[in-house]
Structures are given as C-alpha cells and as structure tokens.
Write a protein that binds this DNA or RNA. Sequence first.
DNA 1: AGTCCACAGGAAGGGCAGGCGA
DNA 2: TCGCCTGCCCTTCCTGTGGACT
Length: 403
Amino acid sequence: MSQKTIQDLFSDYMDKEPIFSNKKALTISYTPEDVPHRDNQINQLGLILAPALKNDRPSNVFIYGSTGTGKTLITTYVTNQLKIAAKKAESDLYIMYVNCKMKRVADTEYRLLAHLANILEKEVPATGLPTDHVYKIFFDALEERKGVVIIIIDEIDALISKVGDELLYNLTRINQELQNIKISIIGISNNLSFTDYIDARVKSALSEEELVFPPYNAVQLQDILFNRAKIAFSEDKIKDGVLSKCAALAAQEHGDARRALDLLRVAGELAERNNNTQITEKHVDMAESKVDMDRIMEVVKTQPKQSKAVICSIFTLLDGISKEKILTGEVYDTYKNICSQISLKPLTQRRISDIITELDMLSIISAKVISKGRYGRTREIGIAISKDIHSRIMDYLKKEFYL
DNA sequence: AGTCCACAGGAAGGGCAGGCGA
DNA sequence: TCGCCTGCCCTTCCTGTGGACT
C-alpha cells in the first residue's frame, strides 16, 4: 500500500463520525453508577458489610452465581460505596481484591498470599520462600494496620479446587491470631456446589452469610444493555432490534451479562470497521461467531507446545477418518507420529491423558469416559467447537509446526 | 460367573528454575 | 557457595473398573 492511501485511510478514520462515544462502558471493568435488577443483592450485601463503619467485623460472605450475573460488579460497587461512607465516618477500612483465575498471580496458595502481601506494600519474591514465611509477612503487614480489612477473593472455587481448603482455614483463623485487626472475607464463586468440597469447619466459618445471584432473563439483560448503550454509543447508532437480539443470545447462555455486553461491543466494532453508520442485527450475528472464534483462538495460541501437538493430533485424526469420535489410544499413536515429524520429545500416555482432560475443560474438545466391555475402558473424544473455528485452528497449527 | 481389555486416574517423586538466608 | 524452599511439568508405578466376551 502506498503512503498516500494509508494516510487517506487514517484521515478517513478521523473524519468519520464515531459510532462509540465511550467504549469503556461496555467492558467488564466498568462500574456503572447504578446497577439495575440487583437491588436486593446490593441491599443485602450493604447490610452485611455496614458494621465495618462502626469498626466492627462484618460477617464473612459467600457469593454464588454463574458467569456474568454481576457478582464482581456488585461487590466492587458496594465496597466502593462503603469506602466513601467509611471516609465520612472516619473509620479505618481497607479493602483488598484478588482474582484467583488470573494465571501466575493468585492461582496457588503461595501466590495468593504473595499477592495480598504486595497489595499491603510488602515485597514477596515470586518463588523461593517457605509458605509459612509468606504467611508471616502477610500477617505482619496486616498487623501494621488497624481497623477492618475486607478481603474479596474472586473465583475462589478455581483456587480451592487446585490447592485444597487448608488455605481458607488459615485465613479464617486470622481473627484469632491478630488482635488489632478485624478481617472479613468475601468469597465469590461461579460454582454453586463449591462448598460441598470444603471441610465443614471452614464452611461454617466462611459462609456466615450467603448471597445467590440468579441469572438475568432476556428482559433484564435488555435493560442493562440499554443503560450501557446510552453511555457507550453516540445517538441513533443502534438499529431497532439490536439490543434485544444481543440480550436474547446471551439469555440463551445462562443469562450472562458479560456476553451480552461483549456482543454489543464487537457488533459496534464491526460496524465501525465496515464504515457502516449504524449497528444492525447482521453485525450482531457476525459478532457472535467472532466472539467465540476469538476466545478459542486465544486459548489455543496460549497453550504449550505439547498441548498444541495433542490438539493437532485429535483434529488430524478426526479430519482423516469419517468417524465423529476417537479414542485415547488412537490419539496417542497419532500424537507420537506428529512428534517424530516435528522433532518433539513425546510425553507419556499418562501425561497425554491429563492434557486431554485439560483440553476438555477448556471446551476445545469433549471427552467422555466410556467402557467398550471386552475392549477396555477409554475416553471417547470429539470436537466441541464449530467447523469453521476447527479449520482456523488447524491452519494455525499447521503453520506453527510447518506441517 | 468369571475373565480381561484398555485405559482412567491417584500417589509419589524426580528434575528444573527461581529465590532465600547463612 | 551451599542447603533448603517453592511451583511446575513430567514420569513411574500402581490400583480401579464397566461391560463384552467366554
């Protein structure tokens, strides 16, 4: 492309009347001024946390609800309001937020504690210290403060399923160990049956109060979208039916507001890129497949080489034969072949079995344990993604491995 | 009723990189 | 520098198992 045309492109872009006026309003990190359809939860959480204003310890709270039901949003909203009130009341309140799903930040006991200590401005190295030492650093840092500390642990189920409930037990005991400080823990979980896996004493200590966030229905989602769209888009940019379409699509997937907002944002971006002046239902359709595609491509790209080789084996096998389902043994044989083609040291079948489980959890493949009687017990593996995403991934992997 | 396949998946531990304090 | 600690990825060894076959 010549210099003139790219300059034209930029100036065209700048001259164009923008579709978005504030795109941030459609992202997860945006906290709106009011949150529709969650009054009940806001009030309940507010009442539970209010004792902090009188320097009393609020009860520990457990918040459940599937993705995009507003758990994190409402918790940050209420705690932000609480901070403002605490400032007025001149009470000592400190709020810490940590998300356990963030890789390499808080996905192990050590990392969670290190992260919490870092929030309290204590340096903890990424690795190397005995865990009890990190506990001590964290406790010391807490003791330097006084008053009430609220620790919000988001996606707590992800952490506990990985490292066990010992950590929670230790955290709930801080109040007995430290005199000057009052700790309250807010655990946020996507998994409703999460507490089945934890020890009874931890459970009773932690879930002094419980809040459940039901999924939004299509009408509520539409309301939420309407509020956000007012902020995010310039006037008259959205055609009739767009918001309800986004809401309906997201409602099909367990009322996920995050997905509804994603759809609307991507639809807007697509309209902008195509030089359209308005967002139409067609853009929403395009956005739907793009959102899925982007998510899965991102997951695949960030996999380690060995997992990519396994994905490649599974896809090659399924492409090569007319069957819809394949078995672990077949995958392992193909995997070893591919390894020799790309000079990769093959891992053991045991490890591959675990990788298959991981890929299943990422919803790239579906794997189900079946018994073939006389012919053994194995896993039946199929693809969990649409045909076009599948071929995009295959193209990417072929390039990556020079196949 | 018993056998036996082809794995699943738990347990233990090795080896590595990164980091600490002495 | 050394001994010890961590997380992470992996191997080795092992026991468990649903149901077709005998």
